[in-house]
Each structure stands twice: as structure tokens, then as C-alpha cells.
Design a protein around this nucleic acid. Structure first.
Lengths: 170, 170
DNA sequence: GGCACCATGTAACTAGTTACATGATTTC
DNA sequence: GAAATCATGTAACTAGTTACATGGTGCC
């Protein structure tokens, strides 16, 4: 799965701007995909050049113009080919867990602080996911809810393990 | 956290070959870091050129020679600077969860198959982690065990959610 | 006879990151 | 008055992937 497949999928549903796509990445996608403006705009440009998507400029007053993108026939075809391709295994880079592995090289207090920060971050991410979930829940499909539920369950599982470890470490 | 920091960390503990480093990546690191030969050998070459690590060639009979790498003083310094730097937030790319998000575009049976395959894979990964854990448990540090426990807990949490969803989907 | 293990690399590529660059409107 | 929101991009870079290339030993 490449960034382009994800962008194509979002445009398959409805037309969007780069800014709209980023909103999706920041909210519901946050726990299983990393996207950023630096990836979105260059991708959109490339896809447009390849005629996989099309650009419409919408003039706005008081705000910058919106470049609204729609998917083309070949774009839809590419997206369905992606959906028919084998599911790729997950890619993860957890700096936190890398540091746990190397924990022997730092003071115990440093490890404890890393763990506390990780818990704090995951707590916040759960809160954010729950907020988004409540906000969109009527519009979410059954499988979209699965992606939320998996994310929340994984964060909660991690928090539980880490809190138990913290208690043991005193 | 870059690949080079991780390699440096492994060499901080003891001298290793590219092949050895890959073994670590394939086993305990498998659930929180993606490394491959294609990244290891070019990195080692670059690090050697920068004099961050040093190469010793060990001649072997009947097997290819081993290029054994040791960390240098500046390498150790770089590694400790990494440990003192802020913890980076996790990077994840889950093709499976992306497909859950786009589940509306495929038949229900396809979604079910994706879920079953995901469960199967995670079950296997837990088994693998448990096997490695038993094999190394006497040598593992306390924080290394944390990295195992977090991984296993997250996989289990995901499996639980997915199994419950499968039951609901009939 | 075939597979897994041990062991190492390079060339070409490309996807994505980082840093830079701009700026009005709305809300607190 | 500050911060958040809306809105878009490019140039330079670099880390990592993919594909290619080799080959003996030991086990089942």
C-alpha cells in the first residue's frame, strides 16, 4: 500500500482538496497511517499528470482558491486493482519500543519517564479517537468502525501493560 | 529514530555482522521495527566510511567470511546522543486497517477473508514472539521484556476485537 | 533432491521528509 | 492580541526498497 492508493480511495468516495485529505489523515487515519502535506501535494500533482485524477479550481472569496480533485476512470480502475492485490504486512517503527530494548544503557528514571510519556500520549490518542468516533458515528460504515475499535483496543492494551510495569518498577 | 541508531545500539552491546543484525530484526524487533538486508548492508558501509564503526574480517572455512563490526568512540557518542534526544512518535502503515476503512468498496466475503487472514497472521506472530521469549528469557533485561509484553498484548487485543467482529458479521 | 542456513553485497530507483514560502479570516 | 483554521505549493534531500548477483554446507 502506497500513499497514492490511500488518496485514490478517499477520492473514490467523493471529491476533495489536499487540505481535506490531510484532515482525514490527522483524525481517523492517525493510528494506522502516516500522511502529511509534504506527501499529499506532490502525490496529487503526480496523479494529475498521470491523468489518474482531475483538478477543478474553485474560486473562493476571502480564502485561497480550492483545488478540488476528482478521480478519473483509470483512477478508479487502479484503486480496485489495489483492493484486489494481496494485503501487505504492517510496517511499524516504534521509537519507544526501540528504547525499551536499549533501556539498559540509561538510568532507571529515564526509562520511567519514557514510559510515563508513552502512556500519556496513548491516553490522549484514545481521547482523540473517541471524540472523532462520536462526531462521525452515524456516517461510519461497519468496517470503518472496525478500524477505530482495533486502534483503541491496541492503545488500551499497551497502556495496561505499561501501567503494570510502572508499579513493578518502584 | 533512524536505522543507523538501531544498528549502533546493537553494536554497542557487542560486535556483530550484518547477518547477525538481521537475525535480531527478524525476531524480537519484528513487531516494532522494519529492517532488511537492503537497509543493513548499505548502512554498515556508510557508517564504516564515517568511522562510526569499524570492520574486522574473520576468515572462515567452508562458509563465507564474516565482516564483523565494532562500534567506535564516536559511534558510542552518537548512540548516547540519540538516547538523549526526544522520543519520536510511532510510525505505522497498516494496509489491513486501510482496507477496513475502504471495506464498503468490496464484497462482504472479501472483508471477512481479510479479517481471517489478519487474525491468522497475528496468531502466528504471537507464537513466534513467545518462542523467542522462552529461548532468550534468561538473557533479557527487564525493559527488553517490556517490549515483548507490549507487542504480545497489542496483538492479542487486535485478535480479540476482530474475532468479536467476525461473529457479528454472520 | 530440495530446502534452510550462512553470508555479502551493489545499482537504480522512488517514496516520502524537511525546510522554506505566503497570507487572510475567524474565534477566543 | 494570539491562536487556530483554511489553503497551497516547491526544491533539495535522503533513507530505504527492489532487483540483481553468488555460492557452499548441512540436514531431512
Amino acid at each position: 500500500m502506497k500513499g497514492r492508493n490511500v488518496i485514490l480511495g478517499l477520492l473514490q468516495k467523493k471529491e476533495r482538496t489536499g487540505y481535506d485529505i490531510n484532515e482525514v489523515f490527522k483524525t481517523i487515519f492517525s493510528h494506522f497511517f502516516n500522511g502529511s502535506f509534504g506527501m499529499i501535494y506532490p502525490s496529487l500533482k503526480k496523479l494529475e499528470k498521470e491523468q489518474v485524477i482531475e483538478k477543478k479550481v474553485v474560486i473562493q472569496e476571502g480564502k485561497p482558491n480550492r483545488n478540488v480533485f476528482t478521480i478519473s476512470k483509470i483512477g478508479t480502475q487502479e484503486f480496485f486493482e489495489y483492493l484486489a492485490s494481496p494485503v501487505q504486512s504492517e510496517i511499524r517503527q516504534s521509537d519507544f519500543l526501540i528504547r525499551m530494548y536499549f533501556g539498559e544503557f540509561v538510568e532507571n528514571e529515564v526509562v520511567i519517564q519514557w514510559i510515563k510519556d508513552e502512556i500519556q500520549q496513548k491516553v490522549e490518542q484514545i481521547e482523540q479517537l473517541n471524540k472523532d468516533y462520536i462526531k462521525w458515528k452515524d456516517k461510519l460504515t461497519y468496517t470503518q468502525k472496525i478500524s477505530y475499535d482495533v486502534g483503541i483496543a491496541q492503545y488500551e492494551a499497551e497502556i495496561q501493560v505499561l501501567q503494570a510495569k510502572l508499579l513493578e518498577m518502584d
